[in-house]
Design a protein around this nucleic acid. Structure first.
Lengths: 340, 340
DNA sequence: CTGAAAGCGCTTACAG
DNA sequence: CTGAAAGCGCTTACAG
């Protein structure tokens, strides 16, 4: 099996003393070949270590056996996206296909690359993620009849989400956080968000905002600040801004664990105690949250990945799956475990 | 360009009024086609939005146009591996190819998957990373004549590193850290490592150890502890073990930023000041290090990625490139900037 | 410089 | 149930 010595179907056929079609049949329709022939051919396949050529098969079946996935430019999500990518790759492998990776040029969502990949018939479908508000990719793909499934919604302006998607209900999770904090007596609940217009970020912020309104909290006492940089330091500066205001919050909901760790640092730097003086929550339940005692929201990564992949093979229709996030309570915000 | 309506070379040929070979020539050997014909065909290509089918081309050229990359199971590296994957994907794209992702089953390095991918001729080569001590993949691939390049060395028992590789000189970086700490008066320099036998981890530890010996430091005062878990919490526990010993270190070199952040936490928890009472260093210069003031070692990610990709196209020989890590000094260990 | 031929390694109806 | 034929969409020598 040295390079260039690949075994072909033809060799298997002559080794087994049958025609090439018969070999192809034992591979693709074994039920229609006689047991004796089947065994004979399988023995030959085994003996030669034969595996069909992916490209030859692809050319004949018009299936690339590859799912395109675009890596987002931003480094911010990586704490979460990395495990997701791993889980998604596994799910796709289970369907006998593989992931083809590509990147988007800076500042773009990479529509041109999607177009090229389709024109070259290099992939059968796409998994799109790292969606932004009014993300144009979904409509673009849907219009062209290109199969895809999205992790994350595009929140298109006209209200219709094109194509199948799966998402975590970030709005609901943040609303639960706000409600839980309120139940513990907090009425001044701040929010530290991302500056970038990610759909996950605005979804989460929307949920926090809606719940504060529902609870009748003063909107001047429940303000949101965006971190200019998606880093611990950025979170710290945003927290400082919040804490320096005339009516500083007693609880801060962070849009991500990274930012929340920054909030935690700033809280400590001021001699305040997290979970006592100021309650802090994050999002993603990353390794950061677990190891620093940060209350966070766990996204069901494996289920998310499995769902997005299964959606790929779903008859093409607009279909969405909204999965709940799970509150993981820790010392930074020791909510009542009965929090709805 | 709806699905199924892909433009073929044949259509371009008839549109331009030439034969199919001529179209193929303008694509692959434009210099041997007359300017007028060239322009005519290019106009047709443009008009139809034609791009050659990847699979058809692959079948004819025996080049998949895909580089295989196996995602490591461990979540620990993700802070660093994610940016690397991004950079590598970009470098590969610049050569007109793409990355095919796969995963290794738990507890395995995925040799079977490498074998399958080769047998199916699904990839042209592999980039292997997340190497472990005595990693068997390099020799396995080299024996079969499969092109590959490795980010990280395998440290085979017989001393010969099979195949081309690029690596960061973690040993040297940690030796410089130890030397720099010693120059500042530290004689008790501890080390917090990974439990997993990653080649990067042992390389770094080896460098720290060698330098301590070279400096004539007491080996009972320079001890290494492995964190059972690759998390902040794991780093904190390892630090506690070190600090509770009879001769606690005054400086701790962490094998990664994540672990070092744990060390930092434990130091603070004990009322000690990092960079004053206890000096702490990390590795990777991740977003964590930058935002928490941790002295760390920056790996030249883009160069690493570009090099590993260029090695793929190098004539097959045993060739290694060792890149230096860059010390990034911050408050947790304010070394003299002249540190060699 | 351009075109007819063969071939890459499979699969898919379609006859026997 | 098995085999001959055509075809997937390109590229690569090779004649004209």
């Amino acid at each position: 099996m040295r390079r260039g010595e690949a075994v072909t179907l033809r060799q298997v056929a002559s080794h087994a003393g049958v025609s090439r079609q018969t070999v192809s049949n034992v591979l693709n329709a074994p039920e229609r070949v006689e047991p004796a022939t089947l065994a004979k051919v399988q023995a030959a396949i085994e003996a030669l270590g034969y595996q069909p050529s992916r490209t030859a098969r692809s050319l004949a079946t018009r299936q690339a056996g590859l799912i395109g996935y675009g890596l987002a430019r931003q480094a911010g999500h990586s704490l979460f996206m990395d495990p997701f990518l791993h889980a998604m790759t596994e799910s796709i492998e289970q369907t006998g296909r593989h992931v083809l990776l590509f990147t988007a040029p800076p500042g773009h969502l990479g529509l041109q690359t999607y177009a090229d990949l389709i024109a070259q018939r290099a992939v059968d479908a796409f998994v799109v993620s790292d969606t932004v508000d009014h993300d144009p990719r979904h409509a673009w793909l849907a219009e062209r009849g290109v199969p895809f499934a999205s992790f994350g919604r595009a929140w298109p302006k006209d209200g219709d989400q094109p194509g199948p998607w799966v998402d975590v209900d970030g709005a609901r999770a943040c609303a639960r956080l706000a409600a839980g904090l309120h139940a513990e007596g907090h009425t001044r609940i701040g929010f530290v968000g991302w500056q970038a217009p990610t759909s996950a970020g605005s979804d989460r912020q929307r949920g926090w905002r809606a719940e504060c309104e529902r609870l009748g909290l003063d909107e001047h006492e429940c303000v949101a600040v965006s971190a200019e940089v998606d880093s611990i330091e950025g979170g710290a500066r945003a927290a400082a801004e919040l804490l320096d205001s005339a009516v500083p919050p007693t609880a801060i909901v962070g849009v991500s664990d990274l930012l929340a760790v920054g909030v935690l640092n700033e809280v400590r730097r001021r001699g305040l105690r997290a979970g006592r003086d100021i309650w802090v929550t994050g999002f993603d339940d990353s390794v950061l949250a677990a190891s620093i005692g940060l209350t966070s929201v766990r996204q069901p990564i494996a289920e998310l990945a499995a769902t997005v992949v299964s959606l790929l093979d779903t008859p093409y229709e607009d279909r969405g799956v909204l999965l709940p996030g799970e509150l993981v309570l820790r010392g930074s915000a020791p909510l009542n475990s009965g929090t709805r």
